[in-house]
Design a protein around this nucleic acid. Structure first.
Lengths: 193, 193, 193, 193
DNA sequence: TATGAATGAGCCTTCATTCAT
DNA sequence: GATGAATGAAGGCTCATTCAT
């Protein structure tokens, strides 16, 4: 009797939510968290401000939701890449997987890097981000140790820094950055201990 | 009639200006650009808001001035490190100089990284930052080429990314980051093509 | 074709309407008019927001309806109490009736007192409230005159103020207020001119 | 050297603050706490919104400040009225003092009555208001006991309710309420136990 | 040179109300 | 009769900036 069936509503909700999340990622990614107003996000999403608050728990809830979604996604990609192979290969696969994910989710990484230095914003994110980077470093370290690299701890710090640095430079100017060449060079370097 | 000679005035001016710049760097570094109010800077500097505007062209002018000062400073340090030596040595010196500067000007780098992903803030900085990083990359490339590294362009991208990545990780947690070990490893790696 | 007869529909309507009114009174009474959102009322009533608007003319319409219903109710109670008796008795009966009604409709009175000083809200209520209090005062005056009290106008103002004051104090802390004792004292006082 | 001397500033501050407090009392008194926007207060005060926040700690801080100022004032008036006299006289003096204060600070009482039923608003006021009314009731009780009234507790409840009720009715329509006559009647009634 | 009172645009958020996938 | 997604005006508050009873 209702003009919209529950299924209609579910679809509507999903669409709006997706529009909002996409818009938020785009704006946060481009202008940073503080540099983006909720209004701007709503406008980009083609949605009223009020509606945004039906789907998301405020501006920092939005950021949180974005991180949750993206991190789940990233974790899944890693898990997949991680499946098997000889220790030496594992490093290569992880490197390639990292950059594949970077390419796929450029904007998210931009946002992530932009937010990393802002104590205030970080607070609302809780331990999510920090725990996350620690985890990566740790995985890296294990791989390098298994592959026979000396001082894997230091080496992991280097490799992580390298991936992070390349990622940021890429994300700052994706069109001109020679990412593929850089990847090959990194892979080559970490092929043998 | 004035109790202050022109020279006194000049000194006073310089002192006040320096206090403001220091305060700004400190607050921007700690709380981020957006997270810092002009009032907070003035307070930290022990100066009235009004006076601050006598010395500096608004909040973004302050950021601009900070970048200018720091970049001049950094440039000078590099120039010094750069003075002489065999091509192979040059890379090592530049790496060491970079991290020496990082240690000296931690807060500035923190700020710089925090601001790097915000189009809006960046705009007010003009080309300064981009030109700057391009310059570094270019210098690096020259050094690596002279030292006989193959594909110096790619190699420069890697080295730069590595330095940048390490710098950020260091700045995020200076107390626990094994910077010295990392430096030695980097230097060792770039000793021979 | 319809599974509901017109009579069923009428009953449904009445039920829903009653649920809404009860919910509104409860929430308005507890949290005040401004402190209560239409959504909260709908939720308490177990009804969708949309439906609420089918039964009631907006938030202030709801308030209006509440006043209408309660005032009708109060009027009825008074009329009943008023039926007969010697003039002297009438005052006593009216006093007792007032407080009986107060006890019965505590929440309504709470709301009523909460709203009494807000020009804006009052406006939407129109003359209803003012007319109402005037009426009471007038009735009181008649009774006191008939019972032989001197200056019944002033005396009515006093008695009305007394009832109103007691009512408010009671409503602020019903559990601890010695309402019965107070009633007896009032009745005793107004037994003889 | 400054274009405004410290004394100038002090005067400026005092003026602005007074304007804001007066405006707030007026608007809160007329439209209630929730019915009044900070913007409206600023406008009435002839001041920018921003300035208001230089003097007052938010909207509820404003209410608090208003209560503090008014209650101090009221307490002083009471203390003065309370000075001496035979027990029987004391009641009379307190009644007269109450209504004198009511007349002086009509708007404040309007506000106070408007706020009394709003749990939410009250919370921000802390115990201030409740403690205050309790105190009055208690003082009243003592007076009545000393003057030889039987059941002074109940009698105090009545007298307090009477004063409160009259005050509210007066405040709702000061121009037409026969306050003086009512006062005399009250005084007469409480002259003898 | 140095002060701080004053401004007002803009931010995040709530909420009464409408209307149709 | 009944739903809830969607709207947008308005609210409290902050803050970069100006300017002088």
């Amino acid at each position: 009797m209702s003009p919209r069936s529950p299924a209609d509503n579910a679809r509507l909700r999903e669409e709006s939510r997706a529009r909002i999340m996409t818009a938020a990622l785009e704006r946060f990614g481009r202008d940073g968290y503080d540099g983006t107003s909720v209004r701007a996000i709503a406008e980009t999403a083609g949605v009223s401000v009020g509606l945004l608050y039906n789907y998301v728990d405020g501006k920092d809830g939005l950021l949180r939701a974005l991180f949750e979604a993206s991190m789940a996604d990233v974790r899944a990609s890693f898990a997949e890449a991680d499946a098997a192979g000889a220790p030496a290969e594992r490093v290569e696969r992880l490197v390639r997987a990292s950059f594949a994910i970077l390419r796929q989710r450029q904007t998210f990484w931009r946002l992530s890097y932009g937010v990393r230095m802002q104590e205030g914003v970080l607070a609302s994110l809780g331990d999510r981000v920090l725990a996350w980077t620690d985890e990566i470093r740790h995985v890296l370290e294990g791989y390098l140790r298994d592959a026979g690299f000396p001082e894997p701890e230091i080496e992991a710090a280097l490799l992580f820094a390298l991936i992070d640095g390349v990622s940021q430079h890429y994300v700052l100017d994706p069109a001109r950055y020679p990412l593929d060449d850089v990847i090959e060079r990194i892979v080559a370097r970490y092929r043998h201990p």
